[in-house]
């Protein structure tokens, strides 16, 4: 049984997208995956779900370096929307950053669970808690 029903992957790099998709599928991490190219598209999507009163994805994998709206900008907008939702998706930043500042910034967002270093691996997925765990958080 897949751990999660819906997850969102916000990433513009094609290879990264391919790798993530494959890994998630192989390890039955999630039933559905939604791909968004950049922060803007992602925010719009979230907004749509909220308006339609659809459930939000449980997990969001978020890249930082994206055109139009990068990961930080997305998070800012996203936390503004948080008030409107009851369930809060776990957000994992997926990045190749080495900059300590990025880790500090990540911590400043309470919606961010942690920062994962690319590439996404089985180990990463195992560490992400299941539904029951989410409920208990």
């Amino acid at each position: 049984m897949p751990k999660f029903k819906n997850i969102l992957l916000v990433e513009d790099d094609a290879i990264t997208k391919l790798v993530c998709e494959r890994i998630i599928k192989i390890y039955d991490f999630s039933e559905n995956i939604v791909f968004k190219e950049n922060g803007k598209e992602a925010i719009d999507y979230i907004q749509e779900l909220l308006t339609a009163q659809q459930p939000l994805p449980e997990i969001i994998f978020l890249d930082i370096n994206m055109p139009v709206m990068n990961g930080w900008e997305f998070l800012k907008e996203y936390e503004k929307l948080l008030t409107q939702c009851s369930h809060t998706p776990q957000i994992f930043i997926l990045s190749s950053t080495a900059n300590p500042e990025d880790f500090v910034s990540a911590n400043s967002f309470k919606t961010v669970n942690s920062v994962l270093a690319k590439p996404l691996t089985k180990e990463h997925l195992d560490n992400i808690g299941g539904r029951s765990e989410i409920n208990n958080k």
Partner: peptide, 17 residues
């Protein structure tokens, strides 16, 4: 470093698959 790691990460990811 990021820009070097990104492709390397990709390579690793691909290898993994």
């Amino acid at each position: 470093s990021h820009n070097l790691r990104a492709p390397v990460a990709n390579l690793l990811g691909l290898l993994n698959l």
